[in-house]
Nucleic acid binder design. Structure first.
Lengths: 240, 240
DNA sequence: AACTATAGTTAACGTCGTTAAGTATAATGT
DNA sequence: ACATTATACTTAACGACGTTAACTATAGTT
């Protein structure tokens, strides 16, 4: 009743407990992340995670509703990392150069973190993130972050007059770019290319070749010739 | 010793047994196929397959080395069905029209048999087909059938002068087409679009729109303008 | 008629995700 | 100050999974 009375969420012992809870969550996610990066998705079992932080498997259920929720929390970080790759090249002024750099970043991410990429874009986590969603957390869906950047990139390109006028649906352009690059990466990952023995059924071209070819095809289809030649002139200047 | 002496593989009772063995294999694969088509990959368990044909789970191991081998045998049929889709349009004379029709068939297959597509192209079956291979069977890798058709299509297009001269690596062209379309399909399947609620994070365009856009982009990048305008004139004639 | 390969069975192991029930410890109400 | 209650775990267990070992009945061969 008094003005000094602290509300339930502010009681010192409670906020300390909350902090400890959060710390425990992070320890769990850390262990899961390690296992995942080291030995792939199938090594991430509830028991293995618990072992690594010296708890029992059932303890995890106090912090995560189930394994899927745990994996989704893991994904949050990964999507942020993914988005960060595109932030890096968002400063490029020339729209076509930026698109090329983004494509490069996209494929590089997939090949650098194959396990993560697989979990993010190739594993059905009972209908990806979202599900029934519920009143879980604010969350803001960090999966969107990268896509939002992609949208911004395409919008910028459009307002710079770099997109062919027949493409009125910019969303379609975004999804076209995403699909094409995802195709390149996911095929590369599905046929784990590294160990490509000489008499393999299909001699897959290097991801660099495929990425460049895909990139130039999509750009040729989407971007005006003006914008492409402008970007080439710029990169010429840089080289000289 | 005598000339009438049948070799081991020809003894009547043996070939009958072999036939029965094959029949059993087919029953198993049939049950697996049903379960798979009806309820998806996770419903395909050794015990469920066995139940359906009124055997015990361990009996399956007499006919298949393990679950992976069983699934791979299942895939064989699926790849044949996949290849058949491209056979259908292989008769089209105009190279560009044939490429368009193949793209349509590709995406249609993926959306018609999502479970199969996922298993074929989106599920790591411990390094897809092949593995250590061993002296298993002739097999001839039916996964190749469709790819072989793709190669033939591109080669035909090239010898008809439809491919831009800068594309000297026809294999790269094949893989470019495959990657682009696979990207469209796999994204469509990963975000099971049917139940796309209105305030979903990303408003995915229809697979038809994406397929057409991807197709035209890739064609624009790969095929000569001549060939494209020729194919358009032909389709004009048809329409009139 | 004795032997042997074939095609199955039952029982079991170790793994998994997950739930139920119990147990200390710390924070709170009176 | 003491009884109560919520918190953060543990142990035990369930049912399902892929898979192996050991056993059994049947058919084919000799």
């Amino acid at each position: 009743m008094s003005a000094k009375r602290l509300t339930a969420t502010q009681r010192p012992s409670q906020i300390r407990r909350e902090r400890e809870r959060e710390a425990m969550r992070e320890r769990i996610l850390g262990a899961a992340h390690e296992l995942f990066a080291e030995r792939g998705i199938e090594a991430v079992t509830m028991r293995a995670i618990a072992d690594r932080i010296e708890y029992t498997a059932t303890a995890l259920y106090f912090h995560f509703r189930d394994k899927e929720a745990l994996l989704r929390a893991l994904l949050t970080d990964d999507f942020r990392l993914f988005a960060a790759q595109f932030q890096k090249v968002a400063t490029l002024k020339d729209p076509v150069a930026r698109m090329r750099a983004s494509a490069k970043a996209f494929v590089a991410f997939g090949l650098t973190y194959p396990n993560h990429y697989r979990l993010m874009f190739m594993t059905p986590l009972s209908a990806d993130p979202g599900l029934s969603a519920g009143p879980d957390i604010d969350q803001q869906s960090p999966a969107e972050d990268a896509y939002t950047l992609l949208q911004a990139m395409v919008r910028d390109a459009a307002s710079a007059g770099a997109i062919k006028p027949e493409f009125k649906d910019l969303e379609l352009v975004c999804q076209l770019l995403f699909s094409g690059l995802h195709g390149v990466v996911s095929i590369q990952l599905a046929h784990n290319i590294e160990g490509q023995n000489e008499h393999a059924r299909i001699q897959w071209r290097s991801s660099n070749k495929l990425r460049d070819a895909m990139c130039e095809c999509l750009l040729a289809g989407i971007v005006t010739e003006d914008a492409i030649s402008r970007s080439q002139k710029k990169s010429m200047e840089k080289r000289s």
